[in-house]
Amino acid sequence: MKRNDDYILTEGQHKGIVSEEVWEKAHAKRLRTGVKQPSKIGRDRVHLLSGLLKCPVCGSPMYTNKHAWTNKDGTYKEIYYYVCSRNRMVRGKHCEYKAMLKKTDIEPMVIEAIREIVRNEEYAQAIKKRIGVQIDTKAVDKELEGYQAKLKEVDLNKTRLEREIDSLPVDAKYRERKLHDMTLRLDSLYDVIVELEEKIEDARLRRDAIKQQAITLENIYKIMVNFDCVYNIINDEEKRNVVTALIKEIEIYRNDESEYPLKRIGLNFPVFKDGGEVTELLWDKGNTVECVLQMTRKSN
């Protein structure tokens, strides 16, 4: 593959199909009218609430659907809606809920709810405690040490057995049978070694995954405690990570039930307070987010 800048251009020796004057005019016209616009496919693929929003009728996840058009003046417009994932299913459990929820209507409400969440010091501390749990690799470390100690023991037995095979006298009684038995034992030890090596590799991968998850969660915590400062400058993928780390699911009202769609937000991290735990945020019908944010408690 070569870059365009690396191409070598030179005058052709053959006679052109059209005259140079006609070619120049056609080329100029193509530059004016025939150049493709940048592809819009793939833009804005990260949507904050995809999968988190639940259909108010069937409870299935809601995902985005795009309505796009080009105006007469050439400007490109697009609007994203959240729709029930089962609404367009031909087979299986089809949902009749056809209403579409504008992305620009629901997402700002959820972001405002997150602002309220992160201002709660006890909630932030609950996530901080979860970080401590996530970085605890003691169980995996102990498991790994056990496998490594067992591998060392088996490897010593293998070395000892190999030594016995090598030193078995040529005139030893039942030598062939002994060699056969020792070879079977040696093969068995190799099987154990391979199995232990696989378990060690698996444990190492699990330990690395725990550490990586802890790093991600710790980054999310840092974003949380500085949410108002950093939210507008982090990219869409980071915003999505923050939202999914904090929120388990979001219920909405049917479009004919309330002027405001937000109904309930289920949280991933319960906050313990006054002998109970806050696990969700509720909204009343017809009220704004700022007015009705409230915490519900479950008794232990």
Rank of each mutant, 00 (worst) to 15 (best):
V170S: 11
V83C: 09
Q125C: 01
D187P: 01
V90A: 14
H180M: 12
N120F: 09
V118F: 07
K178M: 15
R185F: 00
E162W: 01
R163C: 09
D105T: 13
K129I: 13
R91E: 15
E122P: 06
I114V: 12
E112Q: 13
D171R: 00
K128Q: 13
H180Y: 11
G92Q: 03
Q125L: 08
N87P: 02
E122R: 05
P108F: 02
A99K: 01
V154G: 10
R115Q: 13
Q134C: 11
V118K: 09
I117W: 07
D136P: 08
T104A: 14
R130S: 12
Y174S: 10
L161R: 02
K158V: 06
R130P: 08
L179Y: 02
Q134H: 06
L156W: 03
D187T: 06
D187W: 00
Y123R: 05
Y123C: 04
I114T: 03
Y147A: 08
P108R: 04
K128S: 13
A113K: 02
E107A: 13
M109A: 15
I131G: 04
D105A: 11
K150Y: 03
A124Y: 03
R175L: 07
A124I: 13
Y97T: 01
D181E: 12
K178R: 15
L144N: 05
L184C: 09
V140H: 04
I135G: 01
A139K: 03
E96A: 08
R115F: 10
R160Q: 14
D105S: 15
D136I: 04
A149S: 14
D187E: 11
A113Y: 03
E143I: 01
S167W: 00
P169K: 01
G92T: 05
R130I: 12
R86W: 00
K138I: 05
R115E: 15
L144V: 06
N87K: 08
V154I: 13
I111K: 10
Y97F: 06
A139M: 04
L186P: 00
E162R: 05
Q134R: 07
Y81I: 03
H94G: 10
L161H: 11
I117H: 04
D155R: 04
K178I: 08
E176Y: 07
K138C: 04
L161D: 11
K150T: 15
E116N: 14
Y82P: 10
K173I: 14
T137P: 09
M89Q: 13
A139I: 04
L168H: 05
L179W: 00
I165C: 01
D166M: 13
V154E: 12
Y81R: 05
Y147D: 11
K152T: 13
M182D: 01
V154R: 10
